[in-house]
Amino acid sequence: MRETRLWSLHLLVIPIIVVLLGTHFAIIHYAPVFYGMSVEEARSFEVMIERGRSIAQFVLYILLLAAGLYHGLYGLRGIIRELPLTPALAKLVDVGIVLFGLFIFGFGTYVTWWTFSFKIGG
């Protein structure tokens, strides 16, 4: 059952990634269309912080981070484990990828929280 559950989750996060990543692309690359400001302006520090201070951005970024990391690292685990590995190495790959994913998720969440709680002017 375990592999079925892992794979089902890999599929379930796809719509989350498509919607949130698509929105992220739209905001960052098509700022003139959606925000009426140039791309350079949209990527400036001030505008970036202002965007990051909304609760919606905070929650959705963390959701995108979790979904993207799970989907990508499940795929990467599949690719690496398709190589001929000993059972010990296979276990190491599984554990290593989970730890790496948790680390990157933790780091990304910290950066998102830092942005959310940024005090303008110091």
Binding site: I49, G72, G75, L76, I79, F107, V111, T115
Partner: peptide, 19 residues
Amino acid sequence: GMGLIAYMVLHIIETANRM
């Protein structure tokens, strides 16, 4: 897929430069 996951990890690290 491999390109995207590599980019995603790099992207998280480089956008942390805001700090």
